[in-house]
């Protein structure tokens, strides 16, 4: 308490007043700076876009007059809105102006945020495979995520090694990287088929890798996955089995639907529900009896999926549902009633 004399408190209060003044000035200055940057960038970039795309020396010179800190962001903004030859022209200009050199240095920096910035600039300009693709193995997850995006931009230039590295990220320890790799592979579409098929066929592949690969396989469906998906539908990990089911139902065919019917008796309720849903999607009337059994499943989700799947089989399915209304299993009868009601327009 001795330190808390009125004089001491007043002194502290005066310091607070001074600090308040400093903060207020800084806040106003920050606004002015942001506004100045925003208006100048918008104005200049608007003027420069056409000039840079056509390779006008005046435009290139004017762009060079932008503050160095703003050049990467401005170049990225311009390039993202372009494609093909126009984008390559911006990248060419970025190289001659030294911007790509800076991005290269950033990409090799020890600081994660610099590497991230470098990778993002290369990605926006769709160049720099040599600098960025090694970053797929970067120690920082955010940088790895950014590097996956360049892989999408450079889809045609990706070699087998890069594709393999990208696919390997599906088993990354960081979920965000797994997501980004999956997203990138989905965007690569047919180019992703072979590496995904390789992962699915690899008996040594772990659970997280398989689960992510199966997610991609559902989006980029290809018959090349069939044998692996059939094998994985018997995998000890229920999450992997659950992932294999939609792949089978998207592939279709006799083998897949027979396997789905078998999976209606899986120990995991999620697998059973997914199988019922898959059988509904395939719409094979031969599945009606198996789905009828699904109406008696102890899991509500499986009963619901079976009921809705039966509706998708039309007459054969509806016949099973009508019979199930008088089933001795009250849960089966209830689900049949709900499914038929939903067909008839009732909640």
């Amino acid at each position: 308490m001795t330190a808390l004399t009125p004089d001491a408190l007043v002194h502290v209060a005066l310091i607070e007043v001074a600090l308040f003044g400093v903060l207020a000035v800084l806040a106003l200055a920050a606004r002015e700076r942001a506004e100045f940057r925003r208006s100048r960038s918008v104005r200049r970039i608007g003027h420069l876009q056409d000039g840079l795309v056509s390779g006008s020396a005046r435009a290139v010179h004017a762009f060079g007059r932008l503050p160095r800190s703003q050049q990467p962001g401005a170049a990225a903004m311009l390039a993202r809105n372009l494609s093909g030859a126009e984008r390559r022209r911006i990248a060419g200009w970025a190289e001659t102006s030294g911007l790509l050199g800076r991005a290269e240095r950033w990409s090799a920096s020890r600081r994660w945020h610099r590497r991230l910035r470098g990778v993002r600039l290369f990605t926006a300009l769709a160049v720099g495979a040599d600098q960025v693709l090694p970053r797929l193995a970067d120690g920082d997850a955010r940088v790895r995520v950014a590097a996956t995006q360049l892989a999408v931009e450079l889809a045609q230039e990706l070699g087998d090694a890069e594709l393999e590295r990208l696919t390997g990220l599906l088993g990354d320890r960081d979920p965000g990287v797994r997501f980004a790799a999956g997203d990138a592979l989905c965007r690569l579409a047919q180019r992703a088929v072979r590496p995904i098929a390789d992962v699915l066929a690899d008996p040594a592949a772990g659970g997280p890798l398989l689960r992510s690969a199966l997610q991609v396989a559902v989006v980029v469906v290809d018959p090349a996955y069939l044998s692996s998906a059939l094998r994985l539908s018997a995998h000890p990990d229920p999450d992997v089995r659950r992932g294999a089911v939609p792949v089978l139902s998207h592939l279709g065919g006799g083998e897949a639907s027979s396997r789905l019917a078998v999976l209606l008796d899986d120990v995991d309720a999620g697998v059973r529900a997914a199988s019922a849903e898959g059988l509904g999607r395939l719409g094979r009337w031969q599945s009606a009896a198996a789905l009828g059994r699904g109406l008696r499943d102890p899991s509500w989700d499986v009963r619901r999926a079976s009921g809705l799947a039966l509706l998708r089989l039309f007459e054969p399915g509806e016949l099973v549902l009508l019979r199930a209304l008088h089933d001795h299993d009250k849960f089966a009868a209830d689900m049949a009633r709900l499914a038929l009601s939903s067909r008839d327009g009732h909640v």
Binding site: P6, D7, L9, V10, F20, A34
Partner: peptide, 23 residues
């Protein structure tokens, strides 16, 4: 009075800092 000034100053400092961070 001094304590009030001190407390008031601290409180406004926090708020001003939030305004600065926002900007």
């Amino acid at each position: 009075l001094a304590f009030f000034l001190f407390a008031y100053g601290f409180s406004t400092l926090l708020s001003a800092y939030a305004v600065l961070l926002d900007q």
